[in-house]
């Protein structure tokens, strides 16, 4: 009994920093609790070994999500050694605003779609709504939620998480594992581009419906080895209207300027010929017309090699400029040590 308490406490303290972040987590449909099998030999203060446990849906432990901690206070629990606690299934649509922007009915519908989508393609699709990311950046918040809540299927933790902060107006997509490959930066921009209007006007249900539908298209395309929608950089759709125009105009103007200046300089050549028609009196530079023919007598002609000098210039390789990019995705490492892709912005 005492051992169980000690282990619980250890876990709580280890992840204590997450408490304020997840303090607003709403009650879930099912109680989620820390799941682990007790180690008889663990001492007070030691961390315990975690085992996956059957969450009851299909009678096997495979692919069952594990929550690392659920409640914000340690609880003494009458759990016998080895007893398996019931565990809740991880949600795919988490609304930390408690229904302020999204009705429960809508959330449930989205949850169903997201769950099905995740199962169909073997990748966790997660939608997370909160007020603001607090002390963290939206990126860190999204990454950490994904990592520490245990999302991500397979050993590569494949998944994509969409974070929407209603008050700070941030959005962030965090990808992991195979998600980084399927949803590259351009695809993310494309998807968010389709959601922008709804997000701006806080129409969350339509926005996330779009999200799930487009995500499904991308995953299907990936499964069928087709080009993923929005991934191609030349695709007109995914380019933001404004940023697309700016480089174009700068190129055109500088191109015209160069052409004009170049034309002016080249024009000086025929102009100097025309000028000479009118100004043609000048001293002659040499006496070339008066050399005695064949009188050049070269008595000494020596070409002496002195020394050689070799210099080198490093060639810029494009692929090193975007550190750790994969197929158009820029990646970073989150606090848990996992590599995540994706990016965010404000709407």
């Amino acid at each position: 009994m005492k051992k169980v308490f000690a282990l619980l406490l250890t876990f709580v303290l280890t992840f204590a920093f997450l408490i304020p972040v997840f303090a607003e987590q709403t009650e879930t449909e099912e109680e989620t609790m820390v799941l682990f099998a007790a180690d008889e030999n663990a001492e007070e203060g030691e961390t315990a070994v975690l085992f996956a446990a059957d969450d009851g849906d299909d009678g096997s432990e495979e692919d069952d999500s594990v929550v690392l901690f659920a409640e914000d206070e340690a609880k003494e629990s009458d759990v016998a050694d080895g007893e398996i606690l019931t565990v809740g299934v991880l949600q795919h649509v988490i609304d930390l605003t408690n229904g302020e922007y999204l009705s429960e009915a809508d959330r449930a519908k989205l949850e169903q779609d997201a769950q099905r989508l995740s199962d169909d393609f073997g990748m966790d699709i997660v939608i997370l709504i909160n007020y603001d990311p607090g002390a963290k950046t939206a990126e860190a918040y999204a990454d950490d939620y994904f990592d520490y809540m245990g999302y991500g299927k397979n050993s590569t933790k494949d998944g994509i998480l969409f974070l929407r902060c209603m008050e700070s107006r941030d959005w962030h997509i965090s990808t992991c594992g195979h998600g980084i490959d399927v949803f590259n930066d351009n695809t993310i921009d494309y998807i968010v581009g389709e959601m922008t209007d709804d997000l701006r006007n806080d129409r969350l249900y339509p926005a996330f419906s779009t999200f799930l539908s487009l995500t499904r298209d991308c995953l299907r395309a990936d499964a069928e080895n087709q080009p993923i929608p929005g991934a191609d950089t030349d695709n007109q759709q995914i380019q933001d209207e404004d940023s697309g125009k700016k480089p174009n105009i700068a190129f055109r103007v500088s191109g015209i300027l160069i052409a004009i200046v170049g034309g002016f300089l080249i024009a000086l050549i025929p102009m100097s010929k025309l000028k000479r028609e009118v100004y043609n009196v000048s001293f002659r530079s040499g006496a070339a017309d008066y050399t005695k023919p064949n009188s050049l007598n070269l008595r000494t002609k020596q070409d002496i090699f002195l020394y050689t000098n070799t210099s080198r210039v490093r060639i810029e390789h494009n692929d090193t400029s975007r550190s750790g990019s994969r197929g158009g995705s820029s990646t970073h490492v989150s606090s848990s040590g996992m590599t995540h892709g994706g990016h965010g912005g404000k709407i």
Partner: peptide
């Protein structure tokens, strides 16, 4: 010439010596 990482430029330096004569006539 260049390989994958660098572009190389080799400059060889020479001294040239020319000695001789040229004839001129009727330079006005």
């Amino acid at each position: 010439w260049s390989d994958r990482d660098f572009r190389y430029t080799e400059t060889q330096h020479y001294r040239l010596i020319r000695e001789g004569s040229v004839g001129f006539a009727n330079v006005p």
